[in-house]
Design a protein around this nucleic acid. Structure first.
Lengths: 161, 161
DNA sequence: GCCTCCTTTTTGAAGCTTCAAGTAAATCCT
DNA sequence: AGGATTTACTTGAAGCTTCAAAAAGGAGGC
């Protein structure tokens, strides 16, 4: 039996803060969007990914990748978004198995309406407390961690041109 | 009507990475604990907070604070942990409204058994990819963000001893 | 003591995510 | 061509979280 390697004191303190952050932040993002827009943060993200795609449409698998989520999760969420009239699905032209999710006009309006409030929230929760230097550090740190979790770099798409 | 302030390019790139992280990391922590220990990450955290408390017990409210969660969530989770025999609840001596959650022997064993695997996972997901300098930066960054979200510093307890 | 208000905790319903299984089309192999 | 395998997506059930409301004790004013 191998002696387990614990975290160092420094690591432990960092981990506590980081863990607190990834517990509290999602809830804070969620509650603003829920209150003001009756949207999930994940639902918002899906609309945003679609809106950036050429033709405002994406194959389900590609959408799942860009939203960092499982196919199942995306399928359920898109079904709900479709019920609300913000997305439509149609069969993929080249591949009979595939589904393409496309943003509707109403979906774009919804996103455009929700964006300012959400961005304000993100800024006030995260960026207003950081110096420019710290923002750069955050980018690097997240990059380093992501790269370890997923060396292929499939997670996290670049913002569009 | 006020023109919305968007994120700068740098902020946007950092935000994408950070958002990917807070989507993917919880899932990764969850899946290891679920697979190996049939524990939620949050359930693990609750057991951990209890184990550090004097007498291995805490009032529900205090437990909720230390776990960064709502009273309701803690109540449900403790109920499930109690069903599995890892925690017991009894009425608070000084205050008839209060409940005290206490770790059982089985609960401590469960935590001790689960800890090495979980810590390995945390290290391999996060700290193995970072230099010592970056760990310090992570600590600072999370501290800065937490401080803005919660100026009273109720979030995130220091590790014991 | 009694009434009101506040605090602490629990409860139940609704919604979202996950997991395992299912459908259906494409691809591969012979 | 045809049968097996793989890929793409969906579905339904189970579990966890959230929200609103309820239960129940405490605290303060009269």
């Amino acid at each position: 039996m191998q002696e387990p390697r614990w975290l160092t004191d420094v690591e432990q303190r960092a981990w506590r803060k980081f863990a607190a952050l990834i517990t509290v932040l999602p809830a804070a993002l969620e509650s603003q969007l829920q209150r003001d827009e009756e949207l999930t943060h994940f639902g918002y993200w899906v609309l945003a990914m679609l809106s950036e795609a050429p033709g405002e449409e994406l194959r389900m698998t590609e959408l799942a990748t860009r939203a960092n989520a499982s196919p199942s999760r995306v399928s359920h969420v898109v079904a709900r978004l479709e019920q609300r009239g913000w997305v439509v699905r149609h069969r993929a032209p080249a591949d009979g198995r595939g589904s393409v999710a496309e943003l509707t006009g109403a979906g774009r309006d919804k996103l455009v309406g929700a964006a300012p409030g959400h961005v304000d929230n993100v800024r006030s929760l995260i960026f207003d407390g950081l110096t420019e230097r710290q923002v750069a550090q955050l980018d690097e740190l997240c990059g380093a961690i992501l790269h370890r979790i997923d060396p292929d770099g499939e997670l996290c798409t670049e913002p569009p041109g």
